[in-house]
Design a protein around this nucleic acid. Sequence first.
DNA 1: TCATCGTATCAGTATGTAATGATATTTTAT
DNA 2: ATAAAATATCATTACATACTGATACGATGA
Lengths: 115, 115
Amino acid sequence: MITVSAPSKTNLQAKLFRGFGDPSRLGILDALRNGPLTVSEIVEATSLSQPNVSNHLGCLRDCGLVVAEQQGRYVTYHLSDDRVGELLALTESLLADVALGVYECTRYNIPRTEK
Amino acid sequence: MITVSAPSKTNLQAKLFRGFGDPSRLGILDALRNGPLTVSEIVEATSLSQPNVSNHLGCLRDCGLVVAEQQGRYVTYHLSDDRVGELLALTESLLADVALGVYECTRYNIPRTEK
DNA sequence: TCATCGTATCAGTATGTAATGATATTTTAT
DNA sequence: ATAAAATATCATTACATACTGATACGATGA
């Protein structure tokens, strides 16, 4: 039995944060800050496998963080909103001051990097 | 065997996002936006169990997102940096436009709410 | 000192979710 | 129409981590 939890503001906001909280997705979003990229360009930029990239892009697309645009047999993705970039910039700024603590925090680990 | 992945900027930034990405931690941070609170006040505000709150506070403290201050046998916590609040506000704003998509995104679920 | 209150820590359990590999789908070119 | 390229989908597997309950620690007051 699958329990659906209430879509409270906090739950949705946390889910939004988790959208940014995976290194693969974050790498994809970061790559898109410089402008639109096709899936294969993202694959190359992130060194992730193609199915993995497509899965994450589907997630980001559903969440409204990126927008897809079909061009021939390529699909080009770009950030959906300026605030996505702002969010990345703001956390970069914050990280500059808390990086050491974040690194040492052992309650949760950084997922091992994989393809 | 525990593998430690490279602390790249992206990995740390993702880890920082995951700090915000749990409903319990996010609820705690949100409660602290209005000013400092003791642990027991946070327990009451969030309806979480006391060990759970303490665990999350330890995590947030290690990550440098909150600061603890011992006062008698109470410990008062407050947000460490204005940017923490800004980050919450910015995602709230973004969520207002992408909430539906986030809600419907099925690649990851909202953890069922527990004590 | 002893009891109590507030907080922190820990092992164990359960669950969410990321990566892979195989495959399906769509588009273009020959 | 067929082949090839680009992208998407899906089941499986493996792992990270949130919660609980019991307990330890620390500070205060009697």
